[in-house]
Design a protein around this nucleic acid. Structure first.
Lengths: 287, 287
DNA sequence: AACGATAATATGTACGTACATAATAACTCT
DNA sequence: AGAGTTATTATGTACGTACATATTATCGTT
């Protein structure tokens, strides 16, 4: 598949061939980290657990520095995609810390997508680093206020009625179920920012019928009062319809960023929302 | 701010007032988990560390079940947004496990956005659960193949030249730097799927000048050969230009989903790409 | 050679202890 | 009362040991 030939699983050492009780540890973060008293001759059987002695002020190797050191080796291509890296005990020895510490670091790196780990098979550098962009999906109000803009919210429409077919499919509810249909507009510094159309299952969340949704947005109310166990979010690009354009104060057929969210609590569909952002909206993320 | 009045910081107990050495543990995941021998009278001073005895087949309370139990209490609103939850030692006692186990569970819940934790201040249920949608940004080829479609890739254009101003800004390179400008098309089942326009800094990645980018896409090549330490990704909606429409086999002014990516290695800008997806594209994520 | 049982092994995790750290609470002095 | 200092406390984490678990490697057996 890949062009790299790698028949025998071979560890990608290059540092420290075998020096079991090595005195100095390879530089971690540029800092030498001289753990002089590594492995204080196993007198572990004493009643008061002999604590690993360390210099008074010397920063000990913590999981974060192990994390950074491993990442550095990946970034400098000392360890390349697909390579098998040393096992936890070896790394612990090399870096002068406990296996648990290495484990913590490698575990984080694995969830970040840099490493692939499998029992017995070992740990290798991810060959297809699936970059996990962590999208923070905050409450719109906080997103706007966080930029120092003034947030405003207006309830446009609210009606209790039975849902249209596509909502039934989305939330797995019956066509005759008791639902709330809400449309509202969120503004930043007085300008239309996002237009929201939402369906909420009253059966799943009876309290919403009494909520005053002209003061607090349905989303914020739900966040505070209706927990959910799973959800789904999708993003796409659409053209503004005539009415959508009017509400967002733009022109028909403007390109709009659409976010669709559906949330569930167990097997009960809670809410399904269609969030249309005004032209020019960009969703960002670090990666 | 919030309508909830909560003056004195009060722990949200309701289970187990104080029964220090309680026999049964509150149901974890509905399973009773009767740890009969909790706290086996402190004979810890024995040389061979007295291991916590546990029933042969009974599943012990692991961090995952603690995680799920805490999440259940949040979802059932036993612990509401803003509430202070019991401290680690108390939870460990309640659930019959070590503090480290509780710590692991709560730590995960905090990174998932359900909890806010602060030293000394304690742990409380997040009042604005910033939902972190984890977007997996895979290599396009894998995304397409993962859906069982046939992937194809075509290099449209490749030239080595100096960058336009906006790229200089994006990547912080000088206007006279040596760069590669590439446009290519990715197809799924023979149909245009994504149109890519990319600038790569040859100075930062000299090896790319020799790469055969008609066989492997620039993105995949970079993933394998040019590590990066940080990156930025943004999403928006745009209208198709005349040429973009022609390439993606759609019509002018079609709404297109645009992904813009920039990556860095330390202080060196590596690449900046503009990925235009064919109409109808939806990016999904669980939440 | 194919197959199945068994051993070996790297990661996964639980636990108790010890100590670090940050933030609050309590206290002292003026 | 206000300011500065000290004690307290909940989380954060390092460590060693023990054991669980998932794979892979090995070794017989047919």
């Amino acid at each position: 598949m890949s062009t790299k030939t790698q028949t025998t699983p071979q560890t990608a050492h290059d540092t420290a061939p075998k020096s079991s009780t090595g005195g100095t540890v390879p530089a971690v973060n540029g800092m030498p980290t001289v753990t002089s008293d590594k492995k204080t001759t196993g007198d572990a059987a004493t009643s008061t657990r002999a604590p690993r002695r360390r210099a008074a002020l010397a920063a000990q190797t913590n999981w974060q520095s192990v994390h950074d050191e491993v990442l550095r080796r990946i970034h400098t291509r000392q360890w390349k995609p697909g390579d098998l890296i040393p096992k936890e005990v070896e790394l612990a020895e090399q870096l002068g810390c406990a296996r648990a510490t290495v484990n913590r670091a490698l575990r984080e790196l694995a969830t970040e997508g840099f490493l692939d780990r499998r029992r017995k098979a070992g740990t290798r550098v991810a060959s297809h680093p699936v970059r996990r962009a962590k999208l923070d999906i905050p409450v719109i109000r906080l997103e706007i206020e966080g930029r120092g803009q003034k947030y405003a919210y207006g309830l446009l429409y609210s009606e209790r009625r039975t849902p249209p077919p596509e909502i039934c499919t989305n939330l797995a509810v019956t066509p005759d179920s008791d639902m709330l249909h809400i449309t509202s507009l969120h503004l930043a510094d007085g300008k239309p920012y996002m237009f929201e159309e939402r369906w909420v299952s009253v059966a799943a969340t009876p309290a919403i019928a009494e909520a005053d949704l002209s003061k607090i947005s349905a989303n914020e109310w739900l966040v505070l009062h209706a927990p959910y166990t799973k959800g789904d979010i999708s993003f796409s690009a659409v053209l503004a319809s005539e009415t959508e354009a009017k509400i967002l104060r733009t022109h028909k057929d403007a390109p709009l960023f659409l976010m669709e969210r559906t949330t569930w609590n167990g097997d009960h569909g809670i809410t399904s929302a269609r969030l249309l952002f005004a032209p020019g909206y960009r969703m960002h993320s670090a990666i």
